[in-house]
């Protein structure tokens, strides 16, 4: 009997390969976002980001760069996640596979990463997201598409965040 793949099955396979491609490319980024927004519950948030990326795949039109699209989904999930904590905890836990990804990851222990984490913790959730995109060298246009504000406003924000970081770093140096 000839096997013919149905349209739905073919779409499913496309989604699956796209998802795995995104996972390979953005895995570290999603982990970092989860850590920046949920220090103690980073694994839970990481799972949620993965789930939201998976669920949002049908809306990925390919007309925006995958990086920008992933940032949108991941940041939206992360920024509103703690606020939904109660609801999330009541949900069914995601079993083995995703847990495995989270638990096998060894956190970066170098000073730079630790410093970055502590500086990020001092910023507001919105500024944290903008800083991550700036560090990731997204253009102002891309960042504006993620946040949903004008490029001009973002330039001012980024300047202010850099100023804040310099002040925090100076405080740390003075403490030492």
């Amino acid at each position: 009997m000839w096997f013919k793949q149905t349209g739905a099955a073919s779409r499913m396979n496309d989604s699956q390969s796209l998802f795995l491609e995104l996972l390979d490319r953005h895995y570290g980024r999603w982990r970092a976002i989860a850590r920046a927004y949920a220090k103690d519950d980073a694994d839970d948030l990481f799972q949620e980001i993965i789930l939201q990326i998976w669920q949002s795949l049908p809306t990925f039109r390919g007309d925006s760069q995958s990086g920008t699209w992933c940032y949108r989904v991941a940041l939206n999930t992360a920024m509103t996640w703690r606020r939904d904590l109660e609801t999330r905890r009541k949900r069914l836990p995601i079993a083995v596979a995703i847990e495995e990804i989270a638990s096998r990851t060894s956190d970066t222990k170098n000073d730079g990463a630790a410093m970055l984490q502590s500086l990020m913790a001092k910023l507001s959730p919105a500024d944290r997201g903008i800083l991550m995109m700036t560090l990731d060298e997204l253009t102002y246009a891309e960042m504006a598409a993620v946040v949903g504000c004008s490029e001009g406003a973002l330039r001012v924000r980024v300047h202010r965040i850099k100023q804040q970081l310099a002040d925090f770093a100076k405080e740390v140096r003075d403490d030492v």
Partner: peptide
């Protein structure tokens, strides 16, 4: 989830 953060 893939709207801009402001819209979301």
């Amino acid at each position: 989830s893939d709207s801009s953060t402001n819209d979301f």
